[in-house]
Write a protein that binds this DNA or RNA. Structure first.
Lengths: 127, 127, 127, 127
DNA sequence: GTGGTCTAGACCACC
DNA sequence: GTGGTCTAGACCACC
């Protein structure tokens, strides 16, 4: 039988949090950096300010950011933070990958081989 | 600075084609199988019939299906077909994965180790 | 000089959370009890449903409640929960009291005497 | 079942009178002190002048203040006055406290112990 | 019916 | 200008 489920996109606020976490993990955002104001980010992303409010509130509750009233929102200081976020993102991405590959009927060997192959290719492109 | 772009969801018709390809790759759909009628599928998915018509048209152009007048639409016969679709899906998924991991600053070794680790774990869960 | 600050009432959502915590501490609400639906409570209190949504969300994040989609929100099971909430509420109330009394210029002795006095009186009323 | 009643904020004029009484009890306002003019206080507090008029009228009826034509409004002389106001405020605060604690299921001993504990702590902080 | 997300927009508090 | 709270109301997902 044919069964189709649409990519029910995750909630917007979670997608934005994920993007910010990835920016942290990549190093394009660093501890101490000031995030754009809620209004500014809402405009940039074409999203309602309340949605960004929730993004910032949840990030603060997670201990990712620090919000100073009347001043703005900052990435929290602390070396561990980046490490933890990076390892979290890396794991999530890898788990999703494995699950997709297994669903496509790939064997363990097939997956390992393909990953090795693609890594060699992409490193040659850079080097 | 912070720059965010949403995963603008692909057009619906491409998403549907993708799902059908994945079903083929997984084996939940096989060469010779009859696809639901356009009307039926449109109803099932709650999608405009024109969208489904485009799905079927494009799949036929790709050589994925063949339509027999008055009878319906079938997955084309041929062993190679499944292999090709599967290999196409697998490659796309894996390339996206590698790119994301490299963007997160992972080294080749890190990626290999993590993939091996997760594979061992997920295989134990099944076995 | 004369300086007056109004009781800037706490945010409504915090007041409601506090009331629910007090109900738990008093025993008029117990682990396992179902809370009214968001819409119902919003109507009862004459408050916007979004405000109640936040109340329920925050309580879940605190570990106070458990929310089952499509079913409702329940006070979490666990003996410790009531004890912890009760002790938290008791402390908050007492600290506020002490601070108010000290601001009114009461000495330690004065406070102790007055509390003892009032306790004796109120217990006679009951007993 | 869950029943919630908001602290319906007292009328503004009562809140203001309360603040003035507390200032007297604390000693930040003393017998003989001149109160600001009604117009000035209304401006300072961002409140309707009629509200302030009621505040001053009621305070005079309570014997708290006296108004000298063309001169202004003063806190009445007399030692007893401060003592009475202070004792009134202190009693109200303490009674509310006891009632809340009993409603939370605290025993007499529990209340006494906690109050003593918090007093010791807060006095250490100062000393 | 129950909870979850989102938009639009007002108003407040702190700076 | 920056964040925080709240209302009004739409629409979705799960039951």
């Amino acid at each position: 039988m044919l069964k189709i489920e649409f990519d029910k996109a995750q909630p917007i606020y979670l997608q934005i949090i994920d993007q910010i976490k990835k920016a942290l993990a990549r190093g394009s955002l660093n501890p101490g950096d000031k995030l754009p104001s809620q209004r500014e980010l809402a405009l940039t992303l074409g999203v309602n300010p309340n949605t960004i409010q929730r993004v910032y509130r949840e990030m603060e509750q997670m201990g990712l950011t620090e919000t100073l009233r009347g001043q703005g929102t900052y990435i929290k200081q602390g070396d561990d933070l980046v490490k933890m976020v990076r390892s979290e993102m890396v794991n999530t991405v890898a788990e999703n990958f494995i699950n997709e590959m297994l669903a496509l009927g790939c064997s363990k060997e097939e997956i390992m081989t393909l990953v090795k192959q693609l890594l060699d290719k992409s490193i040659k492109l850079k080097g």
